[in-house]
Design a protein around this nucleic acid. Structure first.
Lengths: 353, 353
DNA sequence: CCTTGGCACTCAGGGGAATAGAGTGCCAAA
DNA sequence: TTTGGCACTCTATTCCCCTGAGTGCCAAGG
């Protein structure tokens, strides 16, 4: 990790400059750079031969490689890493993009809508794939709960969370509950738990369930049983998911055009598991995180980079969003976009009251 | 359209037999068939030369083509059409598949869950892409409605439909409503409309709104205003969507391996518009519909076939499901799968009471 | 009249071989 | 330390040739 520092310190000013120019040019054009072209584009009036010497050094350091003998040089994952960590001059997203993000993250949608918007915005703005994990609900506050009897010992539980989200769940019960039982249970649970976070509610209920004491009256017992079922830990649509958008954009990058690799990537999108694990790593990070190529540790992402950032409300991290694209991506443009989108999504989720 | 009949009547028994054998073999192996191979595989003891004569006839009729001079023959779209319409011997899905479909379409999920299961089942069982349109809600019955005040003249409306589905919508109101206003409005609407279909409710409300009469008391007026907003025709997640699964399976077919075409196909999946239009054509059909290649009328689907069938509850068609794959697909296997899945989905959606 | 064997013909695909072009590394001179 | 020169290495492209599969047509045979 401190590697980059030592690496960068081994580079002369000039070498850094050339390296930066090389990476930027490659990111823009996707063509390996030869010494001649670099000599021309880098501004320093040096001959190709000189440039070659520098490039040889850079190659020794593992920052660039030639795909083959006669093909110029291309940044390695390590090269991108150095570039991103120490040479990158990020620039804030341009006004139009910012405006679009802001206006399309309309706080008047429910959480699901916001998440979908964020994902498709990320993909549209970056021309890569956008991904947003479904917000955790663990600490969202219960506002109200209600039970509706269905036939056959089944009950529909409806919970309003957080002022705005509605969740529901069908409970299979061991015995009959009358309509008034259900009503009373709802009243009791509302009185006890309204305003509390879901995990807090779950904990309390578990404790109570643990020792359903004889001194409880029937009503209370019903309420606790029902509540226990509602908040059973497998509760609800879990954090199992993310919303992906713009996968098809990835078709456009030649470096991903190996159909077999692409298929594996799409499979991974569908399985979700690996992608979720990766995003999870980012959930406890402070700001934007960047995984370049094999750094992610998943072979399907070997030719990809992932830029991610957690989004949060009131300091509580609810999820992660990000962008998946080829390692050769316009980091200086994408990073701030991911950053600001995370902030805007957090803000949009917050102003729901 | 009566074309197939006339076409088939022009074919001798033997020609039909050979054609069928050719199509079946091509579907199975994906290799163009030459006269020699066909002569061997078709059972009839005929020499390749004879077969060639027949094949020439079939080619004249537009049922088969050779990709190039020395490559045997392949069915055309028209050939597949004839095959499907008059030569196909469908066989019921095998027991294991049937069992899997039945057991995974657990009626105890909500509609959304069922639709997703159906889609991914279709894709898993056929190894192609599965698609299910979101069920129409127009004729689903309102069971109960409730209003929850949010801050700032906004109200969360919660509707329970059809015994099991929960929908919600945020209303922006022009004036304040007190908690008891809301309660009374809900009571009124419940009393008036519980059990009615959504479209019926909408119609009634529109009539009432049209002439909000002076003789209404304040409470009634509030209720009708609120109801009008809830059921405003842009109401809710509309019929705008479908659930797609297993798109990545399509990577595996060489005949779709042109990356450019594939990209367009995935784009179309994302846009949804064209695919939905196509599926719409099937919504009024009696049973399974089959679109082969260009028949669909969308160029992105030129190399694909779509097998679809409407699914319904109590005779009311709620949506369409189907499978998208290469024109070279195992029709005799896929058709009954789509058919039975539609029926099972309908049944699963029905038994929600 | 249908069927068959024979034959000439066509064409895609694969395997070199030759070529052009890009870029390198190294060396010696400035 | 920089630079020009030079030999060298590869890739990618093109061309050619060949093989194998398959065809269409024709004339002979049942």
């Amino acid at each position: 990790m401190a590697n980059q520092e030592s690496t960068v310190s081994m580079l002369s000013e000039r070498a850094q400059h050339l390296f930066k120019a090389l990476v930027e040019s490659y990111i823009e054009n996707g063509q390996p750079l030869g010494s001649r072209t670099l000599a021309r584009s880098a501004g320093l009036s040096l001959s190709p031969a000189t440039i070659r010497n520098v490039m040889a050094d850079l190659e020794d350091l593992g920052l660039i490689v030639s795909p083959h003998t006669s093909a110029g040089r291309v940044p390695t994952a390590r090269g991108y890493r150095l570039f991103v960590d120490t040479l990158l001059s990020v620039r804030p997203p341009d006004g139009r993009v910012l405006h679009e993000l802001r206006s399309r993250l309309d706080p008047d949608q429910d959480a699901k809508g916001l998440v979908e918007s964020a994902s498709s915005l990320l993909s549209a703005v970056t021309q890569m794939a956008g991904v947003v994990t479904v917000p955790r609900r663990d600490q969202s506050a219960l506002r109200q709960i209600e039970f509706l009897p269905l036939s056959d010992r089944r009950v529909l539980a409806i919970m309003v969370m957080n002022e705005k989200e509605v969740q529901n769940k069908i409970l299979h019960l061991e015995r009959e509950y009358s309509a008034s039982d259900l009503q009373q249970a709802a009243n009791y649970l509302n009185a006890m738990f309204a305003g509390k976070g879901v995990s807090a509610v779950r904990d309390s209920l578990l404790r109570e369930l643990d020792a359903v004491r004889a001194d409880m009256d029937r009503m209370m017992r019903s309420a606790i049983e029902l509540g226990g079922k509602v908040f059973a830990s497998g509760s609800e649509a879990e954090d199992d998911g993310y919303v992906l958008a713009g996968e098809a954009n990835l078709f456009d990058y030649q470096e991903l055009s190996d159909i077999e690799k692409l298929r594996q990537l799409f499979d991974a999108f569908q399985q979700k598991r690996e992608i979720l694990h990766l995003l999870d790593k980012s959930i406890s990070a402070e700001g934007v995180q960047i995984f370049i190529g094999q750094e992610a540790g998943y072979s399907v992402l070997d030719d990809c980079s992932v830029i991610s950032a957690p989004y949060s409300v009131d300091g509580r991290v609810l999820g992660v969003l990000g962008v998946i694209g080829p390692t050769r991506m316009a980091y200086e443009r994408v990073i701030p976009i991911v950053d600001v989108t995370a902030k805007l999504l957090g803000a949009a989720l917050k102003s729901r009251n």
